[in-house]
Nucleic acid binder design. Sequence first.
RNA 1: GCGCCCGUAGCUCAGUCGGAUAGAGCAACGGACUUCUAAUCCGUGGGUCGCAGGUUCGAGUCCUGCCGGGCGUGCCA
Length: 592
Amino acid sequence: MLRELNKKIISSICQQLEQALQTLKESGALKSQKLPPVYLEHPKIESHGDLSSNIAMRLSRKEGRSPQELAEQILDALSPASPARRYYEKAKVEPPGFINFFLSQESVVLLLQEVLSRSDRYGSSALGEGKTANVEFVSANPTGPLTVGHGRQAIIGDVLSNVLSFCKYQVTREYYFNNAGNQMRLLGESVKARYHELGGEAIEFPEDGYRGDYIREIAAALRREHGDSLKASPAKVFQEAAEKAITDDINRTLERIGVKFDIHFNEHSLYTSGKIDEVIEKLKQLGHAYLKDGAVWFKASAFGQKEDRVIVKSDGEPTYRLPDICYHLDKLNRGYDLIVDVFGADHHATFPDVLAGVRALGCDTERIRVLIHQFVTLKRGGEKVKMSTRRATFVTVDDLLDELAAGLRSELASAYGEDSPQTQQPVLERMARDAVHFFFNMRKMNSHLDFDLDLATKCTMENPAYYVQYAHARICSIFRVYRGRTDTPPIDFSSVPPDKLKLLTQEKEGSLIKTLSRFPRLVEEVATKFEGHRLNEYVLQLATSFQSYYNEHRVIGDDPDLTLARLCLVKAVQIVLRNGLSLLGVSAPETM
RNA sequence: GCGCCCGUAGCUCAGUCGGAUAGAGCAACGGACUUCUAAUCCGUGGGUCGCAGGUUCGAGUCCUGCCGGGCGUGCCA
C-alpha cells in the first residue's frame, strides 16, 4: 500500500487536473479538442510549492485566454472529492499561470514512513520486472593495461548495471575481449622484439608496435621462465603469453576497483564456432555483401549508411566490423529485452555500421542502446596529458589508485597520526576505490571528464565522495550515542506511529523528507535515460541538506517523542544515502 | 571538407518534455567548535548562458548560420 507513494501522489494530482479539464470541456468552458498532457514538476524555489503544473500556460494559446485566468478556472474546477485531495494542503495560482500544490503534513509523514518501511529496497522500481538486460562495457583489448579512459567506462557501466538491477532487471554484465585480429598480432610481435632485445640480439621493432614498459616486463618474465628457449618461436607464442599476462592484469585492476563481470566473451570464439563464416554466407545469400578488389564488402549503403564497408580484407582477414556484427547478433539471439553498449567516443563512427549489419541480417535493433561517453581529459601540473596506448603515454587506473592512496595517506597521517586506523592500507585502498567510483561517474557522458591528477592526490577535501560518506558516518554516530544511553529501547523504525512523526515540523525537516521522496523517481529516470551522474548530484544534495539540518537542530534531546521522530528522519536519510551510494559502488562507512 | 560531442561564475560542472529570480562545489573574503564527529555549518562578492539571427505567451534548453575545443572520418580496433 505504501509502495511508490510519491508516484501515487503525482499521478493522482495529475488525474485530478485532467478531470478538471474534462469537466470544463464538457461545460463548454474549454474549446480545445485535444488537451495537452498534464504533468507535474518540482519547482526550484520552495515558496512555489512542492509540485507545479504549467497546464494553463500550455492551453492559453489555443484557448485565446490568459494563462492566469485559465489557471484560476482550473483550480476552481478541481474536484474536492478526488482522492488526490488528502495529499496536499493547498493549491494556489501564481503568475504567470502556474498551479502550485503544497503537500500536506500527512503526505510528508507518509513519505517518511515509506522510506523507513521499505528500507534497503526504497527507491527500487518494478521497471524491469521479468525482463533481462545485458550491459557490455570496458571491453578493452588485451593489448595494454586499463587506462583512466577505460576507468570511466568501467564505472559508468557498473553504475548503470547496478541501477538496472535495482529496478528488477535481471542483469548480465559482459566484457567483450577483442582477442583476435591485427592488433593482437602486433602485440605478439612487439613482445617478441623485446624478448630478442633482452637476449642481446635486437630484431626490428614492428612499426606501430606497442611501446609501453609493460611489453618489456612481459618479455622479461618470459626470459625468466623460459630462458633463451623461445628464440626460434613464432610471434604467436609471444602473443598468447602477452594476452594471458595482460588479461590477468586487467582483471586484477577491475577487481581492485570492485567491478565484476558475469561473462567474458571472447572474440576468438566467434571464429572457432563458425559464426563468422555463417554471417558472411548469410550476408552474401541475402545479396547484402559482394566481392570487390579481392575483398568482401557489406552493402551498408542499403541500410542507411553513407558508404559500403569492407568486412573481409583481400588477405582473407575480417575487419573488426564483422566480428562486431556477429557478436551483436549473438547477444540478440540470447534473448535479452535490453542490450546496452557502453563505448568511448572513439567508437562513435563504427557502431552505426555494426547496427546496419545486424539489421541486414533481419534483426531489429530496437533493443540495443548504444551509449557513447566522452573522454577523460587528464591534467598534470596544469598541463593536459595526451594519452595513447600504442605510444605508451597513458595513465593507468592502477597508477591512479596508487596516487590516490598515497595522497590520502599523507593527509590522514598528518591529521590522525602515522599509525592510526585511518592510515591502514585496506582503508586507504577502499577510500581510493570509492573516490574513483564517485569521480568517474560525476559528469554526464556527453561531457568530457576533467581529471586533475594533482588535485586527486590531495583530494581529501576536494573529493565529494568523502563529503557524502561523512554525512552517513555522522548519522551512524548519532545512533551510537543514542544506543550508548542505558535507558534506550531499540526502535523498530518500520512501525513508528504517524502521530509521533508529526512532530517533524521544522522547515528543514519537511524539505529533507521531500528530498528523500524524490529518490524513487530519480532512480527510474536514471534507468530509462541512462544518466548515472544524476545519482551523484542527488546524493550530494541530500548530504548537504542533512549537514545543514544537523548543524541547526539536535537530534537527541530531552523530549523523548521529538528525539524519536528525529531519529526516524535521520534513519531515513541514512537509508537513502546508503542506497544511493550502493548504486554508485561507493561504500557507506560507519565511521570516518 | 564531412559526422558526433562540448562551450553556463576565476576553475570544474549541474540545469528535469521549453517555465517562475540561471544553481552547486572549489577558489576569494567574513563569521560559527563547552555540542549527536569542524572531513562540518552560516554569510558575502562573483554571469552578455561562445556570437548572430529565428521559432513562442516564455529559450541556457528547440531550429539555422558562424566562432572555438575534443573525438572520429582505414582493407587498424
